[in-house]
Design a protein around this nucleic acid. Structure first.
Lengths: 170, 170
DNA sequence: TCCGAAGTTCAAAAATAATTGAACGATTCA
DNA sequence: TGAATCGTTCAATTATTTTTGAACTTCGGA
């Protein structure tokens, strides 16, 4: 009983040391990307799992709720980070991590970054409209310069995205 | 009294429409980057301000506490997103937004991204050590392949960073 | 050296986000 | 059809993060 407890969450779920570290690593990675840690944990365990896992496997081994596991899987699926695989004979669905960085990045960009960038460009339009109404010429011109600059930022960002995909993926 | 309230936080602090929208835009941007919204608000207001602002200006115009303003400024300074400028005759310090995207990105990478990447590489080393201890050869080799792949990710990420700086900044 | 303004710190409070778990619909099998 | 297994949903709970505000340090001037 004086065996040191594994780190934080993995109290006694039978994860081996590699699994524990992978879960920790991706948990932190998830937070870095602004995602719930449970999603990182799910991906982290799958990442070092040789066989596809069922939702129930995740619940038991990570000690998370069915709800979390379900939401996590759903999100990771639409991100393209996990793939479904029907196991022969089994009724329940199984999932495995997509480990190609290329597709991970593509998915993240498409579903997390691009929409925000697009929304931002919309907001910048509104900002332009407001600036156009400013009476004082000096102010208006100052605003317009700043807004123009902002707009250039977003255009460049849109340029950079495919570049990142290429460099990281190739 | 039936004047529509400005959006959410800017209740009656006398922000003009351009300022309101800029604050909103950067507030959202901050959250996207995983930073407290108050920091986005501070930068957003400075971004469309022609003259340097004091801490007190921020407190009054954004309606945030002195503590938040102070912490926000401190953080933005070390990020390189705001610069100090001593106003002639004034005792209190004034600040203005650095608007060069180049320096913003450089600062963010240096103080937010690089450290995490470095930490990640350290964790991957530990992961390697754990994997080396795995008895079953098949498992060990599987782990080693996955870990190798992870390591390649981080190496590529480190390659991409300067590239982003170049493309966004130039 | 004393006063007051400027800015920082950090524990407590408030706001926000994530997780749980119970209820539900869907699907399979007998 | 009925029972059992899966997976989803979402309101309530819990955990985490952010903000506040009061106490504190620092510094310049009188």
């Amino acid at each position: 009983m004086d065996q040191k407890e594994a780190t934080s969450s993995s109290v006694s779920t039978g994860l081996n040391p590699v699994e524990i570290r992978s879960v920790e690593l991706f948990r932190e990675g998830a937070k870095l990307l602004g995602l719930p840690k449970s999603m990182g944990e799910i991906y982290g365990l799958m990442y070092v799992s040789q066989s596809p896992m069922s939702l129930d496997d995740l619940v038991r081994r990570l000690g998370i709720s069915k709800g979390s596991a379900s939401q996590g899987i759903t999100f990771l699926k639409q991100l393209g980070a996990v793939a479904e695989s029907q196991q022969a004979g089994e009724r329940k669905m199984h999932y495995q991590a997509a480990v190609e960085i290329k597709s991970l990045i593509a998915g993240f960009i498409k579903s997390e970054i691009r929409p925000h960038l697009d929304a931002t460009q919309g907001q910048i339009s509104h900002l332009r409209d407001e600036a156009a109404n400013v009476e004082i010429e000096e102010d208006r011109e100052f605003y317009e310069e700043r807004i123009e600059r902002l707009h250039r930022w977003t255009k460049r960002a849109k340029t950079v995205l495919p570049l990142i995909q290429t460099v990281m993926g190739g």
